Every structure is written in C-alpha cells, then in structure tokens.
Amino acid sequence: MRVTQGTFSFLPELTDAQIAAQVQYCIDNGWAVNIEFTDDPHPRNTFWEMWELPLFDAKDAAGVMLELDACRKAYGDRYIRISAFDASHGWESVRLSFIVNRPDEEPGFLLERQEIAGRAMRYTLRHRSATI
C-alpha cells in the first residue's frame, strides 16, 4: 500500500529534476520552503519533524536540493516532504506540499469499521503493522 498525501501523491515518484522544478516554482512565487520528515504518516499527523529551519531566503532550488540531500542521508528510511508556505496575507498558509522520499517498505493503514448504537458506524484508521 502506498501512502497518498499531498500534491502529486497519485503520480509516480518525482525525479530530483522534477522536485527542483517544483521548488523553483515555489521560490518564484515568494513562498517559504520547508523540509519535514516522519516515521508516522498517519493522515491526522500533520505536524512532522522539521529539517533545519524553513528556507525563507532561498534564491534558487539548488540550495533546497542540498538540504533535501542532507535530510535523505540522515533520514532516508522515513517519509520526507517539502512544503511551501505563503505569508503574503499576513499569516502562513500551505500552498504546496508533497512527499519526496518514502521508506523502502510502507506498512500502510487498515480501516476498521464498527457498528455502534442506532446503526451508526465508527471508523478507526490504524497502522497495518499495529494490528493483530
């Protein structure tokens, strides 16, 4: 099972050249670029660990790609994503976010359904490795 989160999640993996093109698009729009990583890609886990500080002053994609390479060397066995934030309205909002690294083996998730009072349904999403 492949974790699908963020932009491009249903496409094949992006090459480094494609990642750099997306990063350059973010920089050209004045968005701050951030690199994050996690070993828990649960959809409700929106706060991943930050790699260094956000790259507010990045002028081109090459610097971001160097940071991405360093993050991959340190955490290549985890999920890594790039996010771009727009602060032009006085607050930061995510404009683009996409996964750029995945572990070799993705355990996936299991959706459990439970009938509760009044024939209502309760759904629980669990790591596949945490079940049974």
Rank of each mutant, 00 (worst) to 15 (best):
M50F: 09
H127W: 12
H89T: 15
V94C: 10
D69H: 13
Y123F: 14
T4E: 15
W91S: 15
D28F: 00
E36N: 05
L68Q: 09
T124E: 13
S83P: 02
D40F: 03
L53M: 12
G63K: 08
L110W: 03
N29K: 11
F8C: 07
D104F: 06
D39P: 00
M50L: 12
L55Y: 03
P54W: 04
C71D: 06
A87D: 15
C71N: 02
T7K: 14
H89P: 10
W31P: 00
A84C: 08
T124L: 13
L96Q: 11
I99N: 05
F109T: 06
Y123T: 13
A61K: 07
F56H: 12
Y79F: 08
A21E: 08
I99Q: 07
F8N: 11
L110T: 13
N29V: 00
D16R: 01
R2K: 10
H89W: 13
T124M: 11
S129V: 15
A120C: 13
K73A: 14
P54S: 02
M65H: 01
I19P: 01
G76W: 07
I132A: 15
T46K: 14
Q18R: 04
S129Y: 15
E13W: 05
E106K: 05
S83Y: 03
G30H: 04
N101T: 08
E52F: 06
W48P: 00
N29G: 01
Y79V: 03
I19G: 02
R113P: 00
L14A: 08
T131I: 14
S83M: 07
F109V: 04
V33M: 00
R72F: 03
A62R: 12
W51L: 03
Q22Y: 06
T131F: 08
